[in-house]
Design a protein around this nucleic acid. Sequence first.
RNA 1: GUGGUUGUAGCUCAGUUGGUUAGAGCACUGGAUUGUGGUUCCAGGGGUCGUGGGUUCAAAUCCCAUCUACCACC
Length: 375
Amino acid sequence: MKFELIKSDVDSRARAGVISTDHGKIETPIFMPVGTAGSVKGIHTRDLKEDIKAQIILGNTYHLYLRPGLEVIEKAGGLHKFNRWDKPILTDSGGYQVFSLGDIRKLTEEGARFQSHIDGSYHMFTPENVIDVQRSIGADIIMAFDECTPGDADYAYAKKSLELTQRWLERCFTQFTNTQPKYGYRQSLFPIVQGNTFADLRKAAVAHVKTFDADGFAIGGLSVGEPEKDMYEMTEVATADLPENKPRYLMGVGTPVNILESIERGVDMFDCVMPTRNGRNGMLFTSEGTINIRNKKWENDHSPIDKNGTSFVDQYSKAYLRHLIISSEMLGAQIASQHNLAFYLWLVKTAREKIMEGNFSSWKKEMVNQLKERL
RNA sequence: GUGGUUGUAGCUCAGUUGGUUAGAGCACUGGAUUGUGGUUCCAGGGGUCGUGGGUUCAAAUCCCAUCUACCACC
């Protein structure tokens, strides 16, 4: 994998670049739709490509490992063949699931023991086997196994946790170096910067990850309950010291405003469940603000969902989409997800254009105000 | 016609030996959701307790009448 920095903004740390993988190029800044179990819920790959214009999607190690399991994916020839998505894929390592499924985990130096949410069976993730699993899934970008601390963790816990994540990172890279891709194309391993909301820990974490010859770097442990202000501060602390010539991936973020603020702070890659999960529950993001389509005021509004939208689904009326969502019709979740993803991809594409034109900052300021509106 | 059962929120139902301001789930109206368990959480509105009498300090609860729906019998 290769990253080329095309243009740096004059007024901020915002950047435009291109990532080249064996499955094609990714123009940054980019948003990556989340496809947990090998599918972006409710969206065909055709629409993902042609309508939403996604350039890379996520898969989830935790979920794919539990179901369908590695044997099936290997027999399919890897995830790209299995789900018929021939562009780049990134897999999350499962570190976040260990955190978010908190009740059923046990962390040790060796790794994380957890119980399947599907059948209650016991499993162990270690830095080594998480790399192996991601070799089997075959994503272009794979993530290190880390511990993601909750937003309100105290300093002592954050420090102890960071040190564990750092030891795990060493083991991830050792395993990565000692193994080969299974399907004939290259894979890149991204370390993850932890350190919670403590600037000195974040700085130490960045210094540590830079000692590895990685193709890109992720910032994790944010948007997990900490104040928004802390999230921006920690992002700045991280991007200040990360290598200029490698992409930065802010994990799990976020709202459209979060994304613009983070692009301004030097982030190149994003993923978030918000456009799909919140979409399924009736929350729509548009260039004019946020809509809760369940609200009664849309009951008889027969205007398009988003008159400025780029997706064909934007032609459906608000009243119809409200009816579908309230009736729990599958099509409602599909339309809302597709609209939101198309909007997110439009947002980062436009941000990139503005960076290229050299007027990102003024556009971003205006856009952020508009995005905060509730319609 | 006779006997029995039933009636409490939009729906399905709780409601103790009579005892504060009659509850729940779903639905409805708002809000939340950030490296996805097709969610989950928070808040709110809404009831002449079928109707009319009676007993009692006090009735959704006990008594009488009446209406409604259903069941059985004639």
